Measured scan of single mutants.
Amino acid sequence: KCPLCELMFPPNYDQSKFEEHVESHW
C-alpha cells in the first residue's frame, strides 16, 4: 500500500514501479 495515498498495490507489484509511484507524490 502506498503510504501517501492509501492506494493498494498487489503483493507482486514491481518494486521500481512502486517507488516511482511514491516519488510522484513529491
Results as ranks from 00 to 15, higher is better:
2 C>P: 06
10 P>M: 01
12 N>V: 09
26 W>A: 15
17 K>N: 05
9 F>E: 05
9 F>M: 14
22 V>A: 12
25 H>V: 00
25 H>N: 01
1 K>P: 02
4 L>P: 02
21 H>C: 00
21 H>Q: 00
23 E>V: 03
19 E>C: 03
2 C>S: 02
24 S>G: 09
20 E>D: 15
16 S>L: 09
9 F>Y: 10
2 C>W: 01
15 Q>D: 03
8 M>D: 15
13 Y>H: 12
11 P>N: 14
9 F>S: 06
15 Q>H: 07
15 Q>E: 07
3 P>L: 04
26 W>V: 15
25 H>S: 01
18 F>I: 12
24 S>R: 11
3 P>C: 12
18 F>E: 11
12 N>M: 03
15 Q>R: 13
3 P>G: 11
6 E>G: 09
20 E>W: 04
1 K>T: 10
11 P>S: 14
1 K>C: 09
14 D>F: 01
18 F>P: 06
14 D>W: 05
24 S>H: 13
8 M>I: 12
22 V>N: 07
20 E>C: 04
25 H>E: 04
23 E>R: 14
2 C>M: 02
6 E>Y: 06
24 S>A: 12
7 L>Y: 06
13 Y>F: 12
20 E>Y: 08
26 W>P: 15
18 F>M: 14
21 H>E: 00
17 K>H: 06
11 P>C: 03
3 P>F: 14
22 V>W: 04
23 E>H: 12
2 C>E: 03
7 L>W: 08
8 M>R: 12
16 S>N: 13
23 E>C: 04
19 E>I: 10
10 P>K: 01
10 P>N: 05
5 C>N: 03
6 E>M: 06
11 P>R: 06
20 E>L: 08
12 N>W: 01
20 E>R: 10
2 C>V: 03
12 N>T: 07
13 Y>D: 09
25 H>A: 02
21 H>K: 01
5 C>Q: 00
17 K>L: 09
16 S>R: 08
25 H>T: 03
3 P>I: 13
9 F>R: 04
23 E>W: 03
19 E>W: 02
25 H>Q: 01
25 H>K: 00
14 D>V: 11
6 E>H: 00
16 S>Y: 10
13 Y>L: 08
8 M>H: 05
26 W>C: 15
16 S>G: 10
7 L>N: 01
2 C>D: 09
26 W>E: 15
6 E>P: 07
2 C>G: 00
10 P>T: 07
25 H>M: 00
17 K>G: 13
18 F>H: 08
13 Y>P: 08
20 E>P: 05
12 N>D: 14
25 H>L: 01
23 E>A: 11
9 F>K: 04
13 Y>S: 10
25 H>P: 01
3 P>R: 04
12 N>R: 09
14 D>Y: 05
4 L>V: 12
11 P>G: 05
19 E>Q: 11
16 S>Q: 00
10 P>H: 08
21 H>L: 00
4 L>K: 15
20 E>V: 09
9 F>N: 10
21 H>I: 00
8 M>W: 12
14 D>K: 07
7 L>F: 11
19 E>H: 10
3 P>D: 07
17 K>F: 08
12 N>H: 06
1 K>H: 07
13 Y>M: 08
4 L>C: 07
8 M>E: 14
14 D>T: 11
12 N>E: 07
3 P>H: 15
4 L>D: 15
15 Q>K: 09
18 F>S: 12
1 K>V: 12
21 H>Y: 00
21 H>P: 01
5 C>I: 00
12 N>G: 11
8 M>T: 13
24 S>K: 13
5 C>G: 01
17 K>R: 11
14 D>M: 10
22 V>I: 06
5 C>E: 02
22 V>T: 09
19 E>G: 05
6 E>K: 02
25 H>Y: 01
8 M>V: 14
8 M>C: 02
25 H>R: 02
19 E>A: 09
10 P>W: 00
19 E>T: 11
21 H>S: 00
1 K>M: 07
24 S>D: 04
5 C>M: 04
3 P>M: 14
12 N>L: 09
22 V>D: 12
14 D>L: 09
16 S>V: 11
15 Q>T: 08
18 F>D: 03
24 S>N: 14
23 E>K: 14
1 K>L: 10
19 E>M: 02
9 F>W: 04
9 F>I: 08
17 K>E: 03
1 K>A: 04
3 P>E: 10
23 E>P: 02
1 K>W: 02
23 E>N: 12
24 S>C: 06
9 F>L: 02
5 C>D: 00
2 C>H: 02
3 P>A: 13
5 C>T: 05
1 K>Y: 06
26 W>F: 12
22 V>E: 07
23 E>Q: 12
9 F>G: 04
22 V>Y: 05
19 E>V: 07
2 C>F: 02
21 H>F: 00
26 W>S: 15
7 L>M: 14
8 M>Q: 06
4 L>Y: 15
16 S>D: 07
25 H>D: 03
16 S>I: 06
11 P>L: 10
14 D>H: 09
10 P>R: 03
3 P>W: 02
6 E>V: 02
13 Y>A: 06
12 N>A: 08
12 N>K: 13
7 L>D: 04
5 C>P: 03
4 L>T: 15
2 C>A: 01
11 P>Q: 07
10 P>C: 05
18 F>Q: 14
3 P>T: 15
4 L>S: 15
2 C>Q: 01
22 V>S: 05
13 Y>Q: 13
26 W>H: 14
4 L>A: 15
5 C>F: 00
12 N>Y: 03
7 L>I: 13
15 Q>C: 12
10 P>A: 02
21 H>T: 00
8 M>L: 04
14 D>E: 08
